[in-house]
Amino acid sequence: MLLVCVFGGLGTMVRYIFDVSIRRWWHHAFPLATLLVNVIASFCAGMAAAGYVYHTVDQATSLMFVAGFLGGMSTFSAAVSEMVSLARNRRWWLAFSYALMSMVVPLVCAAAGWGLVAVTR
Rank of each mutant, 00 (worst) to 15 (best):
M1I: 08
M1F: 13
L3Y: 14
V4H: 10
V6M: 09
G8C: 13
T12M: 06
T12L: 05
T12R: 05
M13E: 05
M13K: 02
V14L: 05
Y16R: 05
I17T: 08
I17L: 12
D19G: 02
D19C: 01
V20F: 08
S21F: 04
R23K: 14
R24V: 01
W25D: 00
W25A: 00
W26I: 00
H27M: 00
H27D: 00
H27S: 01
A29P: 03
A29K: 10
A33S: 14
L36K: 06
V37K: 02
V37W: 08
V37D: 07
N38L: 02
V39F: 13
V39W: 14
V39K: 04
I40G: 01
S42I: 10
C44F: 15
A45V: 15
G46L: 08
A49N: 13
G51Q: 09
G51H: 12
Y52G: 08
Y52P: 03
V53H: 11
H55W: 05
H55V: 04
V57A: 12
A60G: 10
A60Q: 15
A60V: 13
T61N: 12
S62G: 12
S62K: 13
L63R: 13
M64G: 01
M64K: 13
F65L: 11
V66G: 01
A67L: 12
L70N: 05
G71C: 07
G72T: 04
M73S: 06
S74C: 02
S74F: 01
T75W: 10
T75H: 11
T75I: 09
A78G: 08
A78N: 14
A79D: 05
A79F: 14
S81L: 08
M83N: 10
V84I: 15
V84Q: 09
S85V: 03
L86G: 06
L86D: 14
L86K: 11
L86F: 13
L86V: 11
A87F: 04
R88K: 11
R88A: 04
N89F: 05
R90S: 09
R90C: 03
R91A: 07
W92Y: 15
W92Q: 07
W92F: 14
W93H: 12
A95R: 03
F96S: 04
F96R: 04
L100T: 14
L100E: 03
L100I: 15
S102N: 12
M103K: 03
M103G: 08
V105R: 11
V105G: 08
V105M: 13
V105K: 12
P106G: 08
V108N: 09
A110K: 04
A110D: 01
A110N: 04
A110M: 05
A111Y: 11
A112R: 10
W114Q: 08
W114S: 11
W114Y: 15
G115V: 09
L116S: 09
V117C: 04
A118D: 10
V119R: 11
T120V: 15
T120H: 14
R121F: 12
R121A: 07
